[in-house]
Nucleic acid binder design. Structure first.
Lengths: 341, 341
DNA sequence: CTGAAAGCGCTTACAG
DNA sequence: CTGAAAGCGCTTACAG
């Protein structure tokens, strides 16, 4: 069963190119991979043959001998609904792709399967399909860190890995500082009754943001106990917002652990007839485009997804090149003041 | 350069398994792939050896002989910002993954590259990395249909391909009927001055929705000339909405070609102090979760992404199995009445 | 049901 | 700079 092209001819092989160019397979191979140890005459002959034949190297054959697949996995242990609705995750995935644009590496997106959880994903990683891994949106119990550590593959986490005894390269935002920034902004605008809707407490970003928030509140002598645990998505956050304003009508400042949560809380506030920022001030996180389309526009904390992705990718690329890059890399968040707080 | 596992041993090969189980490579291979022509004693021995050694077949070696890659590409010729913000696209990608969950096939997501456009994507397809292709969000001039037709790979488009002389399997929603549905709803609620913000007119969904809309309006004796061309995203749609209400203050009904556009238009209406649906009624399209989080909630037209993805995937799988599936498959949209119209 | 052998399409020391 | 040859790790007729 041979492969055929659109004209019905079997797909050209290196052997065909070599014959057509009048050289051996070895020099054809060298010429194609831009080898420097090929005479320019032969290089040209091969080049022409390649074009005439429409030759494309068989990646399986190449991988078999080079032991490289030229593909990097972006692992996102989340379901599609979150992956395709959270702008931060999207920017991150795209960022890896952009960072790899000038390399031969391809990106493959691996997400949590609805039917088989992370097991399918782990099996793929184990299967030798990829040369390196970038992980984003890791949860404490997804067992990914352990699995990946065992794989010995070049890896970088975006966000500090959470499993015990795991020591893997990562890049992260200083989320504690981010939480503090949110508190300080709200404090400065006169908030007396703070509340927060957090992210899931099995994720390091959510944990750290809450830590920074609580720390700053306590330092200011305020109560930090009003908190609702969300999951970084909008609709559940909206429901949480309803409960929040119901159970704590005195609240006049809310730190939402990401912009999606912020929009949910803002909707809940509007439903209650609360004005933002008049009655209640809201600060989001991630500084996504979403925040510019709300009314009022959202004050938020930066979380440079593209930059994090770029650095994580470089961490993997360095390991692939046999180097030992320095890590962790920690970026500093900033507050973007708009209208909501 | 051998591959090593976490204990420093080179990765086990089929040869190792065969030796360990006391059989030939051939029967080891048969046993592993669930071959029926292996004695149960040998099957068990091989099974044990596989586990003891932690053996995982080398996919490159297997592909080289089977000429199958066990991967299906989901091709989305859009930039990341749209892919990761449009719920319809996200559901579609995830739907392909779900439809493949019980097969050995893996999904790889191919999107338009910022630096190299669709060329990189086409090169990957040409490279023999995949067994089949599902295309979503195709544009008239992305040259994908032609490229894919030449590749001879099993393919299915979600949305009728637009290039001339291309005859490729596809599944689609009856978007003309959808546009009509929107018009009828608005007409029934007493709209006298219709307007529409369309999708990009190089996409079949956008073209067809507009056609159905215009047709129904003219049938009702109304003017269908007030139209603004959007690109299926929210922020530009919001700007278009501003212009619309500025230039046509008489408008009392808007058909937005998708929910993202609808949200943009709704925001623009609110900015102008227009009440929805009091002053202006709005119908969206795609019936995404987004529409349930707006105020008022969005009346929309269904566009079953998961179902479309499932059918498209099946179309590809059938071709892979050497069958000739019937196409096109056309689904019928329905109106979901909520608050905005 | 089983094994020896050929072959998939490349790359890469090695010798020249 | 070049070619003959070995080898990457599998699968699959073929003969038994």
């Amino acid at each position: 069963m041979k492969e055929h092209d659109h004209a019905g001819r079997p797909r050209a092989t290196l052997e065909d190119v070599a014959r057509e160019a009048g050289v051996s397979r070895a020099t054809a191979s060298r010429a194609i991979r831009g080898g420097d140890l090929v005479s320019s005459a032969n290089r040209e002959a091969v080049q022409e043959a390649v074009e005439r034949l429409g030759y494309v190297p068989n990646p399986a054959a190449r991988s078999l001998v080079t032991r490289q697949t030229d593909t990097i996995a972006v692992v996102v242990p989340e379901h599609d609904d979150r992956i395709f609705s959270d702008p931060f995750i999207g920017r991150t995935i795209a960022g890896v792709g952009e960072a790899l644009a000038d390399t031969p590496q391809q990106v493959v997106l691996l997400m949590r399967s609805r039917s088989r959880g992370n097991e399918q994903l782990a099996a793929y990683l184990r299967g030798g399909h990829v040369d390196g891994i970038v992980v984003v949106s890791h949860h404490r119990d997804d067992h990914l860190a352990r699995e990946i550590a065992r794989s010995q593959l070049p890896t970088a986490f975006i966000g500090r890995p959470l499993e015990d005894g795991i020591d893997l390269p990562y890049v992260d935002l200083d989320n504690v500082a981010g939480g503090r920034l949110a508190a300080e902004r709200l404090l400065a605008s006169g908030m007396r009754h703070p509340a927060t809707v957090t992210g899931p407490q099995d994720m390091v970003a959510a944990i750290d943001r809450l830590a920074g928030w609580g720390e700053a509140l306590r330092a200011a002598g305020l109560d930090d106990s009003v908190r609702y645990e969300g999951d970084f998505t909008m609709l559940p956050a909206q429901e949480l917002g309803r409960r929040l304003f119901e159970e704590h009508p005195e609240v006049d400042g809310v730190f939402a652990a990401n912009d999606l949560i912020a929009v949910g809380v803002m909707n809940a506030a509007r439903e209650r007839g609360l004005r933002v920022p008049g009655d209640v001030r809201i600060v989001g996180f991630d500084d996504t485009p979403l925040g510019m389309s709300t009314h009022p526009q959202l004050t938020s904390i930066t979380n440079p997804a593209g930059e994090l992705a770029r650095i994580a990718t470089q961490l993997v690329l360095d390991q692939l090149a046999g180097e030992r890059p320095a890590w962790p890399v920690i970026l500093t968040p900033e507050l973007v003041a708009r209208e909501s707080a």
